[in-house]
Amino acid sequence: MGSSRAYPVFRTDDLAEAYRRARLLCAWMKPLDPEMWLVAQAHTVEEARALAALLPTGLFEPSYDWDRDVWFTGTELPGDDRELAAELPLTVDADVAPGPVEQAFVRALGSGAARMRWRGEWSPAIPSWSQDPTNQRVELDINEDHPDGRHTVYVHFRCDDEAGAAHLAAAIGGSVLGPVRVGR
């Protein structure tokens, strides 16, 4: 996807509210992809099984052992709980069609970090906004370690656009909460 410019526009400890605000921002975008991106860490067998049931084609990798060339799809996770526990924590990465999977994903999460990302083109076009749809998206980071709240909503642009970020933040009752960062 390349690098974007990401602005934090809403932060809270209430995951349902953070998700609601992220979806409100998605209404300001014309979707460009038929899929969205989900990533989450599973720290328990129960979390891994719940995420595998939801994301059967998702790629599950050991989170902290990059030297091992081991990965599973959700349908290929070890069937024995002890074998699965030995692989934890696992990071799952999946592209999925937005819709019902989103709320099920939020419910399946435990305490591990997670991210939801929707890609689109900001609409209606406002002259101060970056007109190139590359790297325009809404992102919800879940279970972050931040003193002002664990869940943060970001808006992304191709180039720096604090005015556009402030406009979108105001539309959901938020504000630009910090400096722009290079997006992921």
Rank of each mutant, 00 (worst) to 15 (best):
A166M: 00
G173W: 06
A6T: 12
R5I: 13
P98T: 11
V92C: 03
A53K: 08
M116Q: 05
G178Q: 04
A22L: 06
E47P: 14
A48Q: 08
R137H: 13
Y19T: 07
A163I: 10
R119S: 15
L177A: 09
F105W: 01
W71G: 09
R49C: 06
V153E: 02
Q103K: 11
W37F: 15
G112M: 09
L59G: 03
W118S: 12
V155C: 08
L90C: 13
W118G: 00
R115L: 14
D161V: 06
E83T: 05
P8E: 10
S3Q: 13
R23F: 01
A18I: 06
P100L: 07
R181G: 13
D145N: 12
A22N: 05
D93S: 10
R181D: 11
V106K: 02
E162A: 13
A85G: 08
G173D: 05
A125P: 06
E17N: 13
I126K: 11
A114Y: 11
P98S: 08
A104E: 09
D132C: 15
R23M: 15
L51S: 04
F10N: 00
A113W: 10
A50F: 00
E46N: 12
R49S: 05
V138H: 00
A85L: 06
V155R: 09
A94L: 00
L24V: 00
E121L: 07
G174C: 05
M116F: 12
A6D: 13
C159G: 14
G174Y: 01
Y154M: 05
P78A: 04
A85M: 02
H43D: 13
I142E: 02
S128K: 05
S111W: 05
S3H: 14
A94G: 06
S63D: 12
R20Q: 10
Y19W: 02
A86L: 07
L168K: 12
E144C: 10
A104F: 01
G74R: 00
T134M: 11
D80G: 05
S63T: 11
G178P: 01
M1Q: 11
P89I: 10
Y7L: 09
P56K: 04
S4R: 12
R23S: 02
E17W: 02
A108Y: 01
N135D: 12
L84M: 05
G174R: 00
H146E: 15
H151T: 08
R82E: 10
C159M: 09
R184T: 15
Y154K: 10
S63C: 09
M116Y: 09
L177G: 10
E144Q: 13
V70S: 02
V176D: 07
W37L: 14
L84H: 04
R184D: 15
R23K: 14
A166T: 07
L88D: 02
L77R: 01
A104N: 00
Y19N: 03
G110E: 09
A171C: 01
E144R: 13
E35M: 08
D160V: 11
D160I: 09
P179K: 15
A170I: 03
K30D: 13
D67V: 03
E139A: 10
A6N: 12
R21V: 04
G110H: 01
Q136Y: 04
P62F: 03
T75K: 06
V155M: 07
E61W: 04
R23G: 00
Y7Q: 07
R119F: 12
V155K: 07
T73L: 11
P89S: 08
H151W: 03
Y154N: 10
P89N: 08
N143H: 13
P56L: 11
I126N: 04
D93E: 04
